[in-house]
Computed example of a mutant assay.
Amino acid sequence: MLRIAFLLCLVLLPAFARAQEDADWIAYRDAYRQMIWFEKYGKPKQFLQNHLRLQPRDKNVAMDGLRLTLNSKTAQVTLALDALGRAVLPFSKAAYDDNAELVVNRKPGQFKAGPWVSIVTRPDGVYAVADLRTACEQLLAYLRYGGEARGKSCVGVQFTYLKNDAAQVQFRAAGGATSVLTAKEGPAFAGDAMQGFRVFAYRFAAWPEAGQVVTSATPLAIAALLE
């Protein structure tokens, strides 16, 4: 009996190790359900967008060459990833019924995957301060609906660009005067392992309530600053 138990341990330990490595990975069916959760969310969300996002667990894991594919019994679809590891997840009932797999071209355990909500960017680059405040509150309300961000409040938003992007972000007062926001280096979202982006933090308390935030180029992302 002891020998049998020992052999079972030898068989099960690799599987357990893989399960630990992939503990933060997500199956297509689960991702599908979570996207539906966002679609069916009944409170205002016109300033929000939802993606499937891959996040490296370690800052030394490179995003270059990263590929994500959806593999089903009948098809293999490559899902485009942006610089922050976000992809638009296709809603496929056939892939859901086939129990399709989300596969990344890296070693198991290097990435975690899950839904990611952020603020929608505008093609004209002009954001009314009132809309940014509303967007932040909408994102906070959604996170609270899912049991997150308890005890936090909206203090601002952050615009993210690639490190070498020379884009500028300005505040335009109601009277027309403009002030340039200061760029810093940091992560696109709080808690990210990925660093080295050019970020502009717009804190509500530091600027007048009336006005606009004007960007010279579309940011990679707009994040809510929750503290």
Rank of each mutant, 00 (worst) to 15 (best):
G125H: 12
L48G: 05
V120C: 02
A15G: 04
I4S: 10
A210Y: 01
D98Q: 12
A206V: 02
Q170S: 10
K152Y: 01
Q170E: 11
A205G: 04
A87M: 10
G211V: 12
A188D: 03
Q195E: 07
A128C: 04
L132E: 10
R122M: 10
Y142I: 09
M63I: 13
D82T: 09
Q49S: 05
F91D: 05
V126S: 09
G191S: 08
P56Q: 00
A62V: 09
A128W: 02
L7M: 05
A23L: 08
F91C: 00
A223N: 14
P123Y: 08
Y161F: 15
R33Q: 14
A113Q: 10
Y28G: 01
L8C: 03
R198L: 03
Y127D: 06
N60I: 08
V129L: 14
G146C: 08
F204S: 03
G186Q: 05
G114M: 03
D64T: 15
K112N: 04
M194R: 11
Y96A: 10
A173Y: 04
L181C: 12
R57P: 01
G186S: 12
A190Y: 13
A27T: 14
L143C: 03
A27L: 09
L81R: 08
M1Q: 11
K45I: 01
V61Q: 03
H51N: 12
L12E: 05
A223Y: 06
G109M: 02
V180A: 13
Q20Y: 07
G147T: 09
L220E: 08
K43V: 04
L225V: 14
Q34L: 15
L2D: 14
Q76A: 06
A224Q: 08
L143F: 07
R29T: 12
M35S: 05
Q168R: 13
Q55H: 02
V11F: 14
P56H: 01
K107F: 00
Y145R: 06
R3D: 11
Q158F: 01
G85H: 03
V120M: 11
Q34F: 09
Y96P: 02
P219K: 03
P187T: 12
C154N: 08
L225M: 12
R3Q: 10
K40H: 11
L102E: 13
C9R: 09
T178E: 13
A83T: 06
Q76V: 13
V214T: 04
L8R: 12
E148R: 15
P56A: 01
L181A: 08
R122Q: 13
L13H: 01
A210V: 13
G211W: 07
F38V: 10
